[in-house]
Computed example of a mutant assay.
Amino acid sequence: MLENMKAEPLHLCHRLDKETTGVMVLARSKEAAEKIRLLFKTRQVEKIYWAIVLGDPDPVEGVVEIPIVEKEVQSHQSHYKMTLAPNYRLCPEDGKVMKIRRNRNAERAVTRFRRLASASACSLLELQPITGVKHQIRVHLAYGLGCPILGDHKYSHWSKLAPQKLPELTLRRLKLEQSKARHLPLHLHAHRLCLPLGQPLDFVCKPPLFFQKTLRKLELDIPKD
């Protein structure tokens, strides 16, 4: 009798970066998992993330649409990072907009963003990735908006592997010394998922305790809705 009660394994429907917290969808059957995976693949799933970032985005709401590519970083410790591969740049001579030859390996990447709160030289942002490129949110925020995610030591610099440099006010509010900044975890949270399965399924996950504590210390108010 007990043998028949063994739980069936659950099927993973999508992925989160290992340092990202939040909603994960698992299905009880292989068929359901395949159906949900197809929704993710065809970009029919609405995904909402929260991130605590350094600085204040300008503008405070908008869309970042810059292709992303993986590149090798030439430094004393050679490593790979995702980075921006823009289609246009300003000509240094006359300041005119020039079209750049497209990088064949670059992937289209689109992220909507909206500021929810701002304090202590940091902001709380709501993010909606329209596409699903590796490290897309982290790259668009750090290199596109100049607002790296708190605790994102990888994308706070380009050519070096080093802990994130934090503003003095942020360090004071977090009661943290710069030398200990490397222990800060990535403050990126998958807050909500909406699956269009007949009747839309809405999943919401509260931020983890460390994220909530950081919000309180930085005096960033969580939206009530």
Results as ranks from 00 to 15, higher is better:
D17E: 08
D17S: 08
K18L: 08
T20F: 01
T20I: 07
T20Q: 05
G22Y: 02
V23R: 04
M24P: 02
M24H: 03
V25H: 01
V25C: 11
L26D: 05
L26F: 13
A27Q: 10
R28C: 08
R28H: 14
R28W: 07
R28F: 09
S29V: 08
S29M: 07
S29G: 08
S29F: 10
S29R: 11
S29L: 13
S29E: 11
K30W: 09
K30V: 15
E31H: 12
E31Q: 14
A32T: 15
E34W: 07
E34Q: 15
E34I: 07
E34H: 13
E34N: 14
K35H: 14
K35G: 00
K35I: 12
I36E: 02
I36V: 15
I36H: 03
I36G: 02
I36T: 03
I36D: 01
R37D: 04
R37I: 10
L38E: 14
L38N: 12
L38V: 12
L39S: 03
L39V: 06
L39I: 08
L39C: 08
L39H: 06
F40G: 05
F40P: 06
F40M: 06
F40L: 04
K41A: 11
K41R: 15
K41Y: 05
T42P: 02
T42D: 10
T42W: 01
T42S: 10
R43W: 01
R43N: 11
Q44L: 12
Q44S: 10
Q44N: 14
V45F: 00
E46P: 01
E46L: 11
E46T: 12
K47L: 10
K47Y: 08
K47E: 11
I48W: 00
I48R: 10
I48F: 00
Y49W: 07
Y49S: 04
